[in-house]
Design a protein around this nucleic acid. Structure first.
Lengths: 183, 183
DNA sequence: GTCTATAATAGGATAGAC
DNA sequence: GTCTATCCTATTATAGAC
């Protein structure tokens, strides 16, 4: 498996984990989704599901780094950067039709192994939004609270959109995201 | 099993489902949690896990009716009623340490059977908060959006509190709930 | 209504050929 | 690196005694 197809495999794994959670993701479905046999999966992820979930979490953290953290720390007005970030988030979650991996893992009661990377992923998001709020002129403490609120709204919106089978709560949260963070 | 102990059994089942989700809740743990043998569980819930999850969802809807809908429709100022409701919610979720059954089921990708009652439970909550907002003087459309936002914040806060292993996001959301709904 | 025992199946994981 | 075949365990579910 070359480097590029490993990415592809992890991407397929992610799509299973985010929809079914850790326990709901079976080796059979993981194998089907990747187009690999179970044994091949074990070749690439010797630790089994745990290894895969860890790899997927790492993949998500890379994604967040590239599409949220880097943009937040880059050039442009806070407003413009937030607009770019929300665009990426909308695509990543397919406008509320795709669940969140972090939510799926946190909701199922994460394995001990997954707790730390899970927390780090949430903290990355909160830190990036906090920085944006501060850059926009908010006091540090207020920016931090607004950032936490933004992250939890995204999570909750994906849950509610799934529960109602209606993507509009997610869309609405994303629309208001820049305003909520910039005040 | 008398009527009162059936309630107790369902309550134990709920505590397993909310912590592990549908797939993560195994018959063994369900049996342990209730103190019944597996066969006894099948006696009371012939349809197995599906039946149990349905019963638990029904239980939650009754809880919501009693501790949210009825209070919202009852006597008192909107502010006072909201205070009473948040108190119940805080207790129900043990201040953010216990996950939400609705979230746990919605996140795992709900079974087809569970989708409808799940949606109804969310809609009950939204309707109750909307009514409170209207009673507080908000225009209908605005009250409805604020109610949706409140529900999704509670869900997201429970996810984030679990992910960060820190109940403060949930506590903070509950504190702001009356203000968010009443404006 | 509850239990013990047991079936039937799915799940995670490994061995070894290619 | 991938496959087929297999193993072992956990899981869902049922039968039948009490």
């Amino acid at each position: 498996m070359t480097k590029v197809t490993r990415e592809a495999v992890i991407d397929r794994l992610m799509s299973v984990f985010r929809r079914h959670g850790y326990q709901g993701a079976s080796m059979s479905e993981l194998a089907n989704a990747t187009g690999l046999g179970k044994s091949s999966l074990y070749h690439h992820f010797p630790g089994g599901k745990d290894d895969m979930a860890l790899a997927v979490l790492d993949h998500v953290r890379q994604w967040l780094d590239e599409h949220v953290v880097k943009i937040a720390a880059g050039d442009g007005t806070p407003k413009a950067k937030l607009a770019a970030i929300t665009e990426r988030l909308a695509a990543f979650y397919e406008n509320g039709r795709e669940p969140c991996l972090l939510g799926a893992l946190a909701a199922g009661g994460a394995r001990a192994n997954l707790q730390a990377p899970l927390r780090e992923a949430f903290q990355m998001l909160i830190a990036a939004f906090t920085a944006l709020g501060i850059e926009g002129g908010a006091p540090k403490a207020k920016a931090r609270l607004a950032a936490e609120d933004a992250v939890l709204r995204i999570q909750g919106a994906l849950i509610l959109s799934a529960g109602l089978d209606d993507p509009s709560p997610f869309r609405h949260v994303l629309e208001r995201l820049p305003k909520d963070i910039l005040g």
